[in-house]
């Protein structure tokens, strides 16, 4: 994650970048919360990548003879109602949850910033129209919009992802547009316009790269929320479908067993919590880092 931070302020001149980089890195290290967040996140990434090496079990293999085994040396986190190893499912679930979270937010961020940049640069009528559309979308409560969409399109992981992308887009449009409105007035854009460069070129080459930095902070913060939203949809039965080892779906089936088989919903719950926490801590730290107001 820190590499991202370092390479970020591309628009600055090289000398500035160096000193700024050093300051950022120093301040990054200083906040223990950011470090904790990064640590947890790295752990999840490693676990997700090496999942098949870390466990001898198949996440979808049904084995009725090992139904509801409590945690033991053979099954560290116990087994579920059809005898699948819960640890294995959590490890594979990390691939799903992280993968989905990142995909969804990055797609929403991309689409949102492009629309926002266009709206901001082209200004007046078109921009106003886009913003009214976004206002309508923002007026939908995220969970409700996601629920309605998945209900409409049928419960599936892809539809849940689509719903979250749609829910998330307006935030980025707003953010990118307000940045674009500022950038538009800057000298290098004006210069490009006088050279007669095409609007598409200006948006792609000048507007988008210059609005990207607050977007990245927003992306980190949203990652946590997206993972939680996917899990909540899974919990409501509207997200990932069985036998996929999605954390929210695991809790959805597991929570009825809480009183007798406490391990079933508890471990996936802890996984969701830690993953979300890591992104939130990281996002919080990044925001401090890049927010000029808190620089003192």
């Amino acid at each position: 994650m820190n590499t991202q931070t370092e390479t970020q302020p591309q628009t600055l001149t090289t000398t500035q970048t160096l000193s700024k980089q050093k300051i950022l890195w120093y301040r990054f290290k200083q906040n223990p919360l950011t470090l904790v967040g990064t640590g947890i996140l790295l752990m999840f990434i490693v676990l997700a990548i090496f999942a098949p090496l870390l466990t001898p079990y198949d996440p979808e293999m049904v084995n009725m003879s090992e139904r509801f085994e409590p945690p033991s040396s053979a099954h560290w986190f116990g087994t579920d109602e059809v005898g699948r190893d819960i640890l294995t499912r959590i490890l594979y679930g990390a691939r799903l949850s992280l993968g989905i979270g990142i995909t969804v937010v990055v797609i929403a961020g991309l689409i949102g910033s492009v629309i926002g940049a266009i709206a901001g640069y082209l200004g007046k009528a078109f921009g106003q129209f886009i913003m009214r559309m976004m206002d309508i979308m923002l007026a939908f409560p995220p969970l409700v919009l996601a629920m309605a969409l998945t209900a409409a399109l049928g419960p599936s992981l892809i539809n849940a992802m689509l719903a979250i992308v749609i829910v998330k887009i307006p935030v980025y449009v707003r953010l990118a547009r307000s940045e674009a409105l500022v950038v538009r007035e800057q000298l290098f854009v004006k210069a490009a316009e006088t050279f007669g460069l095409s609007k598409v070129w200006i948006i792609a080459r000048h507007i988008v790269p210059n609005v990207i930095s607050p977007i990245i902070v927003q992306v980190t913060i949203d990652l946590g929320e997206a993972i939680l939203l996917i899990a909540t949809l899974g919990f409501l039965g509207l997200g990932a479908q069985p036998p996929m080892p999605e954390w929210g779906a695991m809790i959805s089936t597991g929570w009825e067993f809480f009183l007798d088989q406490w391990w079933y919903p508890t471990f996936p719950g802890i996984a969701i919590f830690l993953a979300t926490l890591s992104f939130n801590l990281l996002g919080d730290g990044l925001r401090d880092l890049l927010d000029p107001k808190s620089t003192r």
């Binding site: 919360l33 929210g248 919903p265 979300t276």
Partner: peptide, 25 residues
Amino acid sequence: DYIGRFFSITGVSLPVFLSGLIFII
């Protein structure tokens, strides 16, 4: 500062369906 922020960030990270259930139990 860190304890306070950690405490508050925990709130957004906890899935409600888990914290609610644990509270009930």
